[in-house]
Design a protein around this nucleic acid. Structure first.
Lengths: 292, 292
DNA sequence: TTTTTGTCTTTTATCCACAATAGACAGTTT
DNA sequence: AAACTGTCTATTGTGGATAAAAGACAAAAA
């Protein structure tokens, strides 16, 4: 079936939300810019909306005829891109299922399991290999190196080097640099979540990523910023499978972040380094604890 | 044409060299281990050798009938793997040809140029993207970020962080660790090359890689070791296109290496850091000079 | 008993085909 | 003139097919 039209379906769903807010849709190029897709896809969406009698479409006129109903949306599972599906499926296998280090990974078997072609699996594995969890034997299989204690230690070692350096450059940013405004917003969110921690502690994970990525970005070094992808994926999946003490852990991390943010604001390198080290140390401990 | 039999051809050529040294070949599994290929390939090689009347083959008996001639070998250009061909071709385009940053890279065009299928080009680009020189726009083209001054600065920044840390762990290695013996051999080669620098300065590049990789390896951190791949590829191709002052540059670097090695031997962290910094500084300057 | 060989099956590397998507260009509308 | 639409072309993403290479297993030889 060549290519899945997930881009279309996902953009269609998002367009339905736009539609709920106005009486007429804007021009095709404008819609394309808003939804981040090409005009070809926009026209497919408009055609489909016309078919469903959601809009009356004649050239520039795109009049909304009725509000979208639940059944107008495409189901969520049809809007995921194939690579996301492969990624999730693969991560579940290696993090949840008892995948031993040294195990062989078989492209064909993986593809059959997921119900997809080998090309996509292969490309996923190549992309994924930069995370250091698998390794290729040319003309032969892949080897799973495993989410082990060593992996976590090596990962955190580099992370700490990079983050200390990034935090120092953050503190040295000009006062009118937009990153300070981003930091304000992130700090405010910390206070909001802490104020209602029992209900909102699950929002920490996403906020954590946003905060650290902001810090890393200030290094202006593509290798440092790219490395943060590895941290992100590891923490993202790891926390999905390990939720013990999540509330307490997250509350503590939020407090540490606030100290860290205050230190950045002080622009005092010594304070920054101390606060950064303190937070990284507890982050490392949390990760290591959850491994075994 | 599915798969090129480059593994076979390359192993066949290497096997011809073995054949020149003995009167009978060993068992199939042993040959496989020596040449690093499977028995299937070994049997294909033996079959071909029999056809060419190079050997008489009956089960365990593989008697050499005559010495291999030049025309028995497969031509060198047929033994390169497809990914090597793509890599070379691509690097020539972006380093030698006037490839401007921001330029679009087109999988199909690249594939047609090289005379290969799109899948292989695509997989190469995915693998190559971890070097930070190109970036993908999903559902669309790749963007060349270019071998710019910023790239070189970002690369060397991380390199310096990693190498300083690795050098420190090297100095802390137990005295009976095999790395010290490797270091001895590398040091001896430095002296040899320096003694005949006018004729042998071209050997520096390979020795340089060996030395720094040895240092990086002692970090025992896969991310640090893997990062050295980027350094390797950048320097490897870069020097192919920039040979001004190579003799003088290499002689200087060899001297710096010898100081650096002496500092590692002293196991004094302060000396190590100083020697490492000195060498990294001049390596960075060399790279930056050659960019524009 | 251990190693080697003969035979067969499975997997990888690669090309190709085709639907989805992006993007270009000219004509049309504001 | 500027932006938009209609139409057409080019490129990407993905499954499937096939030769090369790896690898499993039993029979044969040492």
């Amino acid at each position: 079936m060549a290519k899945q039209n997930t881009v279309f379906k996902d953009a269609f769903n998002r367009c339905l939300k736009l539609l709920a807010e106005t009486s007429a849709l804007p021009s095709e190029p404008e819609l394309g810019a808003t939804l981040g897709v090409s005009r070809t896809t926009i026209r497919a969406i408009l055609t489909r909306m016309e078919e469903l009698q959601l809009i009356a479409w004649d050239k520039r006129a795109k009049v909304v005829l009725r509000q979208p109903k639940a059944e107008d949306y495409y189901p969520a599972e049809e809007t995921d891109s194939l690579s996301d599906i492969i990624e999730r499926s693969f991560m579940r296998r290696i993090l949840a299922g008892g995948a031993e280090p040294g195990m062989q990974i078989n492209e064909l078997e993986l593809a059959r399991d997921i119900g997809t072609g080998t090309t996509s699996v292969r490309e996923f594995l190549i992309r994924f290999s930069r995370f250091g969890l698998i390794e290729k034997r040319p003309n032969s299989h892949w080897i799973l190196k495993g989410f082990t204690r060593e992996f976590a230690l090596e990962l955190t070692e580099v992370r700490e080097m990079f983050e200390l350096r990034s935090a120092a450059s953050f503190a040295a940013l000009a006062p009118d640099h937009p990153a300070w405004a981003d930091l304000d917003r992130i700090e405010a969110l910390h206070h909001e979540i802490l104020a209602d921690i029992d209900n909102r502690y699950r929002e920490f994970s996403e906020l954590d990523e946003r905060f650290h990525l902001l810090v890393h970005t200030s290094s202006s070094n593509r290798f440092i910023v790219d490395f943060y992808d590895i941290i992100t994926i590891v923490f993202h999946y790891h926390y999905q499978w390990n939720k013990t003490n999540a509330r307490a852990r997250n509350a503590r991390a939020l407090e540490e972040h606030l100290d860290y943010i205050a230190a950045l604001r002080s622009r005092d390198p010594v304070l920054v380094e101390a606060a950064c080290r303190r937070h990284l140390k507890s982050a490392r401990e949390t990760l290591l604890q959850s491994i075994q």
